[in-house]
Simulated assay, not measured.
Amino acid sequence: MFFRNESFRDFLQFYPVVSVIVAINVILWLLMFIPNPLSPIIYTWGVGWNVGIDLGEYWRLVTPIFLHSPNDVSHILFNSFSLILFGPALEQMIGKFKFMLVYLITGIVGNVFTYLVGTSALHLGASGALYGLLGLLLYMSFFRLDLIDPASKQIVTVITLIGVFMTFIQPGINISAHIFGLIAGFALGPIFLTHAVPYSPWRNQRRRVVRSDGLNYDPNRWDKRRFRFRMNRNVSSIIWWIILILAVLGILAGVI
């Protein structure tokens, strides 16, 4: 469920919402990291700031979801890996529009409760949204076992428990965003998983559009695909294990 063999091009085609979110996050981070006239503008007007919300700047409940600390490359790195790990399966299972809604709703819920708690600290990051995805997967693990395999259920449960535990013991963590994002994702489970279908890598293969005029038939085309799969499978598995380890390290470090 969390390990696939897509090429980069196929990943962009099969999971466009995840790809766009990661691209937005990285581009905005680069614009803040590299000195330029836009850097202070993006940070000043996008960072979560409860005083600003009190003054009517309600967009600050949304914009922090897509911003990450320009002084900490691990922040954007681990968050991106976590989204790439957990997002694609959900995007396929519930659909692009529902996935986008879950990501935004849970991220906003995390920021709303950050505001209600009344902290004066500035905050930014996709923590609420990412924990929202974990919350949805956690609901699936308990109440929709038809949608998740035992190994994936174990991964979700362990990472969620570690993430919640580290949320309360690591300094400088936006506890409200983590916990209420997780709760929001779990609460959305009965609604957004109603018509969900189990994840299947073969469904992606059937979506491939083969452009042909019918005159260039290659009788060995299936053999070529099998050969390419054998060549890439081990490399892809290693890459996805690295992504999983980095995502877990991100949770342990308290940066997501």
Rank of each mutant, 00 (worst) to 15 (best):
N111C: 09
G135D: 06
F142K: 02
F81K: 06
G125H: 01
K98Y: 12
N111W: 05
G128V: 11
L136T: 03
G132Y: 07
S127K: 04
G125I: 03
V117D: 00
G110R: 10
Y103N: 03
V102D: 01
L124Q: 07
N79H: 10
G135T: 09
S127N: 10
L122Y: 10
S82G: 15
Y139N: 08
E91Y: 01
T114I: 02
H123Q: 12
E91C: 08
K98F: 08
F81Q: 07
L85D: 02
E91G: 03
L138A: 04
G95M: 07
L137E: 05
G110Q: 08
L137K: 06
S80V: 11
V102W: 02
V112C: 09
L90F: 01
A126N: 11
T114M: 08
L124W: 03
G110A: 10
S82N: 12
M100L: 15
L134V: 05
M93G: 01
G118R: 07
Q92N: 13
L137G: 03
T106Y: 03
I94R: 01
I94S: 00
F99P: 01
L130N: 05
N79R: 12
Y131I: 08
A89R: 14
M140L: 12
M140A: 11
G110L: 11
A126K: 05
V112T: 11
L116P: 01
P88M: 15
Y131K: 13
Y103S: 02
L133C: 11
I105P: 03
G118E: 05
A121W: 10
G128M: 06
K96N: 14
G110S: 05
G118C: 03
Y131E: 07
F97V: 15
A89G: 15
V109L: 06
F86I: 11
I108M: 14
Y131Q: 15
T106A: 13
G95F: 08
Y103L: 13
Y131A: 12
T114N: 14
L90T: 08
Y139L: 12
N111S: 15
L124T: 04
L136W: 02
F142L: 07
N79A: 13
V117W: 12
G135R: 08
A121I: 14
G110I: 13
L136Q: 00
P88T: 15
L124V: 07
L101Y: 06
M140Q: 08
M93K: 11
M93W: 01
G128C: 09
F81E: 03
G110N: 10
I108T: 14
V102I: 14
I94M: 10
K98H: 13
L85A: 13
V117C: 00
L133F: 01
